[in-house]
Computed example of a mutant assay.
Amino acid sequence: MQFALRPFDASDADWLIAENAAHYARSDGFDDSFGVLVSEIVTDFLSDHDPSREAGWVADDDGTRLGHIFCVQHDAHTAKLRLFFVVPAARGRGVAQGLLDQCLGFARNAGYRGMTLWTHESHKAAGCIYRRNGFSRVDARPAHSFGVDLVEETWTITL
């Protein structure tokens, strides 16, 4: 599968929010609060991000969006991976690895020493790609979020 990575911009926002909200409602039973959270993250990024330390990318196949990922500042030395998603039809074709490579490379070039992320244990494929790329799961705890019972995970990597 051919795809290009391009910078995320405001024209991607509505698609990103709707795609995430609909997908996770179907796949995980998440309620509307998940879409609200995604919208807040995207709005905050668009209104106030430092382009030298924070960026987002969209995987694109001739105008068809395949996925997205963001690198934002967690603290002075640590980046935070956010909103990593690949549409189901594009999974297993290298899109996730391409997005993750872009994000990690950007974080290193921006001077971050490490990266952290938050996800859910039910996202097994995500856990596999994180582990394969050198991330370690440093925390896992039960939670009730987005209307369902989950196990929230924190993963980190030294860059």
Rank of each mutant, 00 (worst) to 15 (best):
residue 56 G to V: 03
residue 80 K to I: 03
residue 28 D to M: 14
residue 44 D to V: 02
residue 71 C to P: 04
residue 69 I to Y: 03
residue 81 L to G: 11
residue 26 R to G: 00
residue 19 E to W: 04
residue 12 D to N: 15
residue 17 I to H: 01
residue 34 F to S: 06
residue 36 V to K: 14
residue 15 W to S: 06
residue 52 S to E: 10
residue 49 H to Q: 00
residue 25 A to H: 13
residue 82 R to K: 10
residue 53 R to W: 06
residue 27 S to H: 15
residue 13 A to Q: 07
residue 18 A to P: 01
residue 60 D to K: 08
residue 15 W to I: 06
residue 41 I to P: 05
residue 71 C to N: 06
residue 40 E to K: 14
residue 72 V to L: 03
residue 31 D to P: 05
residue 75 D to L: 09
residue 84 F to N: 07
residue 70 F to A: 04
residue 74 H to K: 04
residue 38 V to E: 06
residue 40 E to D: 14
residue 29 G to N: 07
residue 47 S to K: 06
residue 30 F to C: 14
residue 78 T to V: 15
residue 76 A to G: 11
residue 80 K to V: 00
residue 84 F to T: 04
residue 68 H to K: 11
residue 76 A to F: 07
residue 77 H to Q: 13
residue 49 H to V: 02
residue 30 F to E: 11
residue 16 L to V: 09
residue 21 A to Y: 10
residue 28 D to H: 15
residue 28 D to C: 13
residue 72 V to K: 02
residue 15 W to Q: 07
residue 59 A to V: 12
residue 53 R to S: 03
residue 33 S to Q: 12
residue 79 A to F: 03
residue 74 H to V: 01
residue 55 A to S: 13
residue 76 A to T: 12
residue 16 L to D: 00
residue 60 D to Q: 08
residue 31 D to M: 03
residue 52 S to G: 07
residue 44 D to F: 03
residue 71 C to K: 02
residue 29 G to P: 08
residue 58 V to C: 03
residue 73 Q to V: 04
residue 63 G to T: 02
residue 70 F to L: 05
residue 63 G to L: 05
residue 24 Y to L: 14
residue 67 G to T: 00
residue 36 V to L: 13
residue 12 D to W: 08
residue 11 S to E: 14
residue 62 D to I: 12
residue 83 L to A: 01
residue 68 H to G: 09
residue 41 I to T: 06
residue 56 G to W: 03
residue 90 A to W: 08
residue 20 N to A: 11
residue 26 R to Q: 10
residue 14 D to A: 15
residue 86 V to L: 12
residue 89 A to D: 14
residue 77 H to P: 01
residue 42 V to D: 01
residue 87 V to H: 07
residue 53 R to T: 03
residue 70 F to Q: 01
residue 69 I to N: 02
residue 46 L to I: 10
residue 69 I to P: 01
residue 38 V to L: 00
residue 67 G to N: 01
residue 53 R to G: 03
residue 41 I to R: 02
residue 25 A to N: 12
residue 82 R to E: 02
residue 80 K to M: 07
residue 18 A to T: 08
residue 62 D to K: 13
residue 18 A to R: 12
residue 86 V to C: 12
residue 68 H to E: 11
residue 29 G to C: 06
residue 40 E to S: 12
residue 63 G to Y: 01
residue 73 Q to K: 10
residue 30 F to T: 11
residue 71 C to H: 02
residue 62 D to C: 11
residue 70 F to Y: 07
residue 75 D to F: 09
residue 43 T to I: 10
residue 66 L to M: 13
residue 37 L to W: 00
residue 68 H to R: 15
residue 48 D to F: 00
residue 80 K to D: 05
residue 80 K to A: 08
residue 46 L to M: 13
residue 88 P to D: 15
residue 76 A to M: 10
residue 43 T to N: 11
residue 57 W to S: 05
residue 59 A to P: 12
residue 34 F to Q: 08
residue 84 F to I: 08
residue 17 I to F: 05
residue 17 I to A: 04
residue 39 S to R: 15
residue 54 E to W: 00
residue 61 D to P: 02
residue 86 V to S: 11
residue 27 S to L: 11
residue 74 H to L: 00
residue 64 T to G: 08
